[in-house]
Simulated scan of single mutants.
Amino acid sequence: MSVVEDNLAALGLSVPEVAAPAGSYVPALRNGNLIYTSGQIPTVAGELQAVGKVGAEVSAEEAAACAQTCVLNAIAAVKSVVGDLDKVTQVVKVLGFVASDPSFDGQPGVINGASDLLGKAFGDKGAHARSAVGVAVLPKNVPVEVEIVVAVED
């Protein structure tokens, strides 16, 4: 097991199986020393963690937990490409989408659920650039979708 997986285990978490694509794409793709993940939604063992708009049917706290699940699924996608998560040298970028009620403007706080877990899992290598974007709707009516880009060693 990797240091990253040990860090997750200390939090009571583990890297899940990579989710099967729901369309014509791959979960993650390596180009040079970068791995790009496809957008990951909050599924746990194939079941949606939550549905609805943040600020209406889903609270900001629930959405932050969903963002954590999304990034855990993204970590699984990275592992499916690189094999050993300790080969990650830097989390480079996080892009988080939040299906938001028109009055909700707390997207950065929601995506902190993903960012905070990356910091706990990868330590200093988890610091990253980030965008948190409010959108009208996401696939399957989920409240959050997250994708990441990581740099890896050869």
Rank of each mutant, 00 (worst) to 15 (best):
M1F: 07
E5H: 02
A9C: 01
L11W: 07
L13T: 05
S14Y: 08
P16T: 12
E17V: 10
G23I: 08
G23M: 08
Y25C: 03
Y25G: 05
V26S: 11
R30Q: 15
R30C: 04
N31S: 13
N31A: 12
G32A: 09
L34V: 08
L34I: 05
L34A: 09
L34E: 14
L34S: 09
I35C: 06
T37P: 03
S38P: 02
G39P: 01
Q40F: 06
P42D: 13
P42M: 12
V44W: 08
A45H: 12
G46W: 05
E47N: 11
E47L: 10
V54M: 03
V54N: 02
V54E: 06
V54F: 01
A60Y: 01
A65V: 13
C66W: 08
C66P: 04
Q68R: 15
L72K: 08
A74L: 09
I75H: 05
I75Y: 06
I75Q: 06
A77T: 13
V78Y: 10
K79Y: 11
V81C: 01
V81R: 10
L85E: 09
D86R: 06
V88L: 10
V88Q: 09
V88D: 07
V91M: 10
V91F: 05
V92H: 10
K93G: 00
V94T: 07
V94L: 10
L95K: 14
G96R: 04
G96I: 04
F97T: 00
F97S: 02
D101M: 00
P102A: 11
F104Y: 15
D105N: 13
Q107T: 15
Q107K: 13
P108C: 10
V110Y: 07
V110I: 14
G113R: 04
A114W: 02
S115N: 14
D116C: 04
L117F: 09
K120V: 07
A127G: 05
H128V: 00
A129W: 02
A129D: 13
A129M: 07
R130F: 03
S131L: 09
V133Y: 01
V144T: 10
E147F: 01
E147Y: 01
I148A: 01
V149W: 00
E153N: 09
D154W: 06
D154E: 15
D154T: 08
D154R: 11
